[in-house]
Design a protein around this nucleic acid. Structure first.
Lengths: 341, 341
DNA sequence: TTGTACGCGTTATCAA
DNA sequence: TTGATAACGCGTACAA
């Protein structure tokens, strides 16, 4: 483990000043004679020169790292988002640090602090915190922020939203169009804007048709873990079936939960979709792998990640882009878990 | 976007030298009078001081970032690993950069180069490359490396392996113990040590019982995408069923593929497990959510990540730990997709 | 076209 | 107990 070679080492070896070496090795447009340039280049190769980005950044205050803060990459939705972000980042020679906030505002704060300390200048975040002071300090520090999934009401923060309300409406409407009138909605704790919007879309659609809503909400604090969502789905389904007049269709606030719904029904020998129809929300790939294939609302995760990263890089390149927002539209993925009443 | 305050700003405001400020703010054990210490602390608070880690690292050459290189976090196995790593990293105030190598050695090289440039001192990698020169340069640069999942034959690199061979053996043996003799094995391209080992475990177990192996291998180059594995599973199952004497049990090299196997069978109205038994390999949570629940070999993903990160941090803390390897043992997760013949 | 010299923010060494 | 100063590796005015 010997010390890495620096531009000074090369300068000495090439009998030039370190300034000249720097000019060559940092792809500066500064003119350097062909002879020296070539000598320096070959020497750098030979001596295994690796630029030290710390030094470079300390000087230039440009960072090639972006931070991504999401609740949990155990949730396939967020791992797709992260994957999309990383793909675009990679293509632009940026690197991504992955942070799981686990729905804990304190952890989120901690990550933001770290990001500030590491002089990172771009962040994509699905925020759980309602405290905006951290965002203000990021912006003051020149950090560009893109909010995905969960809206942040704050100037200078661009949003990539998803129309959850419309998604909730669309799913409910679809079940109605298949002749269902007793439509249950199962949801984990309605503690975030996105959850509220889906619920509100459902309520609205029910009201519009003069139907009585059947909502079961888990009060459990969130653990973003596929299995816990699954179990919640089972439990809430059991509750729904315990009602005097059970539903003929069940709408779940996410796909994992829908899997739980289907499982609970199967265990009770209730056939899906012949006896009860099920619709999910997310559109993760796994939905195509279960039996029956899950009809669901597609939320473009991977695309959302790519979009967010593009937007972020644009802003960081100082293109002085107007802070536009994007609202992605829901799409119905009709597969096999819904049948006419 | 005003300039961030530095220790010099605080020094000026407190009428002390920046050295004193540094001693206070970096939690140095160096003695500083109580009065000054408090003045500096409150001033730092007041002036919103955020330490610049670039400066600190440039000086100290200690990094609080680790790199993680895996084929793709779209694969739930690797996102679990990453999650486990990140959890331990977070607890130790480390940050994780996530890299998807997409099974491309060139990309892997590129990431390693970036890691070197960013002066990162610790890496967890599931390597696809057979070229060891990159690892040598990492080690020369003082980067500590932990290889997971895919073995790297190289001194100074600790391994966290999984006994794939035994896993393949175990799965096959289990099917045999249920009275199956015509056992098919479906696998994506056998291009990596892990794949070779599982296959060899299967072959060995078949040979031991004097049974004829039935192997279907996809020759398609790898795209680490859940859906492509799923489709491969379907396709290979179709091939298996086209044989003169089709199998009564199918062993898939990963869970995603097993899902595909089950789907293909269902579409042909072949019941699982009544007509044909299926066993997977990985033990991802989703296996509990499908119908029937997938019997499989558990590979401890999350635990592997945690272990890898702990090991890495130990090494980085210079505990001069002997470079021990860990071989995790397979475990059979008996669920509902296998039935006696 | 080249080199000198400074500063980025921090910590460590040395002297006071 | 404190402070001045020299690094760390790099890029860039400025001067030559």
């Amino acid at each position: 483990m010997n010390k890495p070679t620096t531009i000074h080492d090369i300068a000495r070896a090439a009998n030039v000043s370190s300034a000249t070496v720097s000019r060559v090795l940092s792809n500066s447009s500064y003119p350097v004679s062909k002879a020296k340039r070539e000598r320096i280049l070959s020497l750098a190769e030979e001596m295994n020169y690796v630029p030290n980005l710390l030094g470079r950044q300390l000087k230039g205050s440009k960072s090639t790292t972006i931070g991504v803060i999401v609740p949990s990459i155990m949730n396939p939705f967020y791992s797709s988002v992260l994957f999309g972000i990383e793909e675009i980042a990679r293509q632009n020679n940026f690197t991504v640090i992955a942070c799981n906030s686990l729905h804990d505002p304190l952890l989120e704060d901690e990550y933001i602090r770290t990001i500030l300390e590491k002089q990172i200048k771009g962040v994509v975040i699905s925020s759980i915190s309602s405290d905006k002071s951290q965002f203000k300090s990021m912006i003051k520090a020149g950090v560009h922020v893109i909010a995905i999934d969960q809206k942040i009401e704050e100037d200078q923060i661009s949003q990539i939203e998803f129309d959850y309300q419309k998604g909730g409406h669309l799913a409910t409407k679809f079940l109605q169009s298949k002749g269902h009138t007793r439509i249950g909605y199962v949801t984990s704790k309605v503690d975030r804007p996105s959850r509220k919007s889906i619920l509100s879309g459902y309520m609205e659609a029910m009201k519009l048709e003069g139907l009585e809503p059947l909502v079961e909400e888990s009060k459990a604090d969130f653990v973003d873990n596929a299995l816990s969502e699954f179990d919640t789905g089972k439990m809430l389904t059991a509750r729904l079936l315990g009602r005097p007049v059970p539903p003929t269709a069940i709408f779940a606030c996410n796909d994992m939960m829908a899997f739980g719904v289907i499982r609970e029904l199967s265990e009770r020998n209730i056939r899906v979709p012949q006896d009860i129809s099920v619709i999910g929300f997310d559109g993760i790939d796994l939905g195509q792998m279960i039996n029956p294939q899950l009809t669901t609302i597609k939320q473009p995760d991977y695309e959302m990640g790519k979009l967010a990263c593009k937007m972020l890089l644009d802003k960081m390149n100082g293109a002085d882009v107007p802070a536009y927002d994007i609202i992605l539209q829901p799409e119905l993925l009709e597969r096999g878990s819904v049948e006419p009443r």
